[in-house]
């Protein structure tokens, strides 16, 4: 393997990290409030609201049922508006984020739903406001589950980012297609696969240990 190839792979790794990092950050920031609103407006939540819950839930379901490869193409106009181009690493961040936001929303919603109603009732009995319940009860109590869910999101985004590479998004997927597949360079293909596996392993490990560290509801 030449020096050029090493530079190429490093470049791909950085691009992938950038795409995944940025789209993860955006989807967490948008998905967290989405999940909170879903959970509190759900029937039996602390501020039940059927129309809001129904509308958001529908939106999330629609978002999640569109295959990523189709979503990527379908929202090209939106991508153009937001980043000025539909090709390249930055352009890939838009569909990646859009596809991950509903996922994060559901992950957060289900994490919050796991919290015992009794704990919420106890907080209400102490005169907590809905906002205080969200900030001091729901989110801290669900933190380990949320971290696990976010880990899952990051790993899915690594996979999707490789797919974005196929339509000129850059990154490891792009390199694997253009060099490994189209130019018959199996060593490049292998190198990108190893890099992706290592990335996934790293995030899974980091996520698991962070989740365990914040979890105190088990003995020991």
């Amino acid at each position: 393997m030449s020096q050029d190839l090493t530079i190429l792979l490093t470049r791909g790794l950085v691009d992938t990290a950038y795409m995944v990092g940025a789209s993860s950050a955006i989807s967490f920031l948008a998905g967290l409030p989405l999940g909170v609103i879903l959970s509190i407006t759900a029937p039996g939540g602390i501020l039940p609201n059927r129309p809001v819950y129904g509308a958001l839930s529908l939106l999330v379901n629609v978002g999640r049922s569109i295959p990523f490869i189709i979503l990527m193409v379908a929202i090209i106009p939106l991508t153009r508006i937001l980043v000025g181009t539909s090709i390249g690493t930055e352009a890939a961040i838009v569909p990646l984020s859009v596809s991950a936001i509903p996922f994060v929303g559901r992950v957060v919603e289900s994490a919050l739903r796991e919290i015992d109603d009794g704990i919420i009732e106890a907080a209400l009995s102490m005169g907590a406001t809905p906002l205080e319940i969200i900030r001091k009860v729901l989110l801290p109590e669900a933190l380990p589950a949320i971290i696990s869910g976010l880990t899952l999101t990051v790993i899915s985004l690594i996979g999707y980012s490789a797919m974005a590479g196929a339509i000129g998004g850059g990154g490891l997927g792009d390199i694997a297609i253009r060099y490994g597949y189209q130019r018959f360079m199996p060593d490049v293909m292998l190198a990108t696969v190893i890099a992706l596996v290592l990335m996934v392993q790293f995030f899974q490990f980091a996520g698991d240990s962070l989740s365990a560290k914040t979890r105190h509801d088990k003995k020991g």
């Binding site: 015992d116 009794g118 704990i119 009732e121 106890a122 209400l124 009995s125 102490m126 005169g127 009860v137 801290p140 109590e141 933190l143 380990p144 914040t214 979890r215 105190h216 509801d217």
Partner: peptide
């Protein structure tokens, strides 16, 4: 405000696990 002056305890304790 009134609830802050009425303490309550529960069968299942309802403590914050974290």
């Amino acid at each position: 405000a009134a609830r802050k002056k009425i303490g309550m305890i529960f069968q299942s304790f309802n403590l914050l696990a974290n």
